[in-house]
């Protein structure tokens, strides 16, 4: 079953007088449990695509089904709930709130979900355990290394048990050791827990972890490569 069904998705911006087509006509299905990489040179529209998939941005045309639900025309407030429930974001620069410790950071989306008390804390603890950080739950971001911070961010993304994790260059600001570690975490989450992962990257090496590589050029899907399972 496809978690994400994009049909004829287009997204255009107006820059001054010029209409810029960031996405032209995207048709894409992503199955549950898949690990997909999106690749493309800068300006190719891959970030726009990720924003559309993440319900941060609305397409100007086309339909988008997320877990069987049409979402392309929903109101902002409803989209916030959709993001909260179905999508886990992992950003290049982690974006943890600096004054909160790891446990509190992971609880952030759970608060917006309306979870309270022990249940919220337990879920956050479990998520931190899944990324292997159970011994660092009371550390603030400044007390953690880049790789650890990104793992907290991943824990934050999976704490809601989302349908899909969207990672925007998750290893973009990490050294190669930490990068491998993070990709290992993704791989494990994908294999062991069957979590769907979509990552945007321009590092060819990182695509090796996925099942498919979607190559984007000028707002269109250039080609889709299937990664040989090694």
């Amino acid at each position: 079953m496809a978690v994400i069904k994009l049909q004829d998705i287009a997204r255009s911006y107006k820059v001054g007088q010029v209409q810029v087509m960031a996405l032209k006509k995207i048709d894409l299905n992503i199955e549950k449990g898949e690990f997909v990489s999106i690749m493309g040179p800068s300006g190719s529209g891959k970030s726009t695509l990720l924003n559309v998939i993440g319900c941060l941005d609305r397409p100007t045309a086309g339909t988008y089904e997320l877990s069987g639900k049409r979402v392309e025309k929903l109101r902002d407030g409803v989209l916030a709930d959709i993001r909260n429930q179905f999508i886990g974001f992992v950003f290049q620069r982690f974006h943890l709130l600096p004054r909160l410790n790891a446990l509190e950071n992971v609880q952030l989306p759970l608060i917006y979900r309306g979870l309270v008390g022990k249940e919220r804390r337990n879920r956050a603890k479990k998520a931190l355990e899944m990324v292997g950080l159970s011994d660092r739950i009371h550390h603030t971001p400044s007390q953690l290394s880049g790789g650890q911070q990104q793992r907290v961010a991943i824990a934050r993304a999976i704490s809601m048990e989302p349908a899909v994790i969207l990672a925007d260059e998750p290893t973009g600001s990490l050294d190669s050791g930490s990068s491998k570690n993070i990709m290992g975490v993704f791989n494990q989450l994908n294999r062991e827990y069957g979590i769907t992962i979509i990552q945007v990257t321009h590092d060819e090496e990182m695509t090796a972890y996925g099942d498919r590589v979607i190559r984007i050029l000028d707002g269109e899907i250039e080609k889709i490569d299937v990664v040989n399972a090694s």
Binding site: A80, N84, L108, P109, Y112, R113, M160
Partner: peptide, 16 residues
């Protein structure tokens, strides 16, 4: 702004 963006991505509404 950055923090605002992250919070919005994680499910914060405008009212929050």
């Amino acid at each position: 702004t950055e923090e605002i963006g992250v919070r919005r991505a994680l499910g914060a509404k405008q009212s929050d």
